[in-house]
Simulated assay, not measured.
Amino acid sequence: MHHYGKELKITDIVQQQPIVVNLLASSCLPCRRLMPVLEQAARRYSDVTFVSLN
């Protein structure tokens, strides 16, 4: 689920499951390197909600 550029309330996505919140800057090289790792983890762990905020 992607909500690019839209307001999102945490209560919209919380469904009694763990959440990983990643705060990043698109200009940050380590942050950009982490994105594929988090995307892979999101595919692997469907019982966890992953949220990235830029």
Rank of each mutant, 00 (worst) to 15 (best):
Ala25Ser: 09
Val48Gly: 05
Leu24Pro: 05
Leu53Tyr: 14
Ser52Glu: 07
Val51Leu: 02
Ile10Asn: 13
Pro30Cys: 14
Pro18Asp: 13
Ser26Tyr: 07
Gln15Ser: 09
His2Glu: 13
Val14Met: 09
Ile13Ser: 11
Met35Glu: 06
Gln17Ile: 05
Gln17Ser: 11
Ser46Ala: 06
Asn54Leu: 15
Thr49Leu: 06
Gly5Phe: 06
Val20Gly: 07
Gln16Leu: 06
His3Trp: 09
Ala25Leu: 13
Val21Asp: 06
Val51Gly: 04
Val21Arg: 02
Cys31Met: 07
Leu8Ile: 08
Val14Thr: 09
Glu39Thr: 01
Pro30Asp: 14
Cys31Asp: 03
Arg44Ile: 02
Lys9Pro: 05
Val20Thr: 05
His2Ser: 10
Leu8Thr: 08
Thr49Phe: 01
Tyr4Met: 09
Thr49Lys: 11
Arg44Gln: 12
Pro18Met: 14
Val51Ile: 04
Ala25Asn: 14
Tyr45Phe: 13
Phe50Val: 10
His3Ala: 08
Cys28Leu: 09
Ile10Gly: 10
Glu7Thr: 11
Ala42Ile: 04
Lys6Gln: 13
Arg33Ile: 08
Ser52Leu: 00
Ser46Glu: 02
Met1Ala: 15
Gln16Pro: 01
Asp47Thr: 02
Arg33Tyr: 12
Ala25Asp: 13
Gln40Asp: 09
Leu29Val: 15
Leu24Lys: 10
Val51Tyr: 00
Thr11Cys: 05
Asp12Gln: 12
Ser27Lys: 09
His3Ser: 12
Asn22Val: 00
Tyr45Asn: 09
Ile10Asp: 15
Arg43Cys: 04
Ala41Arg: 07
Leu53Thr: 04
Ser27Met: 08
Arg32Phe: 14
Pro36Lys: 02
Gln15Lys: 09
Glu39His: 03
Met1His: 12
Arg44Leu: 11
His2Gly: 13
Leu24Arg: 08
Tyr45Met: 04
Val20Cys: 11
Leu34Met: 14
Arg44Val: 01
Pro36Gly: 01
Val48Ala: 03
Ala42Glu: 04
Lys6Ser: 06
Pro30Trp: 14
Arg32Asn: 15
Ile10Trp: 14
Val21Thr: 11
His2Lys: 15
Gln17Gly: 11
Glu7Leu: 10
Glu7Pro: 09
Pro36Ala: 03
Val21Phe: 08
Ser52Ala: 05
Val21Trp: 05
Lys6Asn: 07
Tyr45Val: 00
Val51Pro: 02
Tyr4Cys: 03
Gln40Asn: 10
Thr49Met: 12
His2Pro: 09
Leu24Asn: 06
Val14His: 11
Val14Ile: 05
Pro36Glu: 02
Val37Ser: 00
Met35Ile: 00
Met35His: 08
Val20Pro: 00
Arg44Tyr: 12
Val37His: 00
Arg44Asp: 08
Ser27Asp: 14
Pro30Ser: 13
Ala41Pro: 15
Val48Thr: 00
Arg43Phe: 07
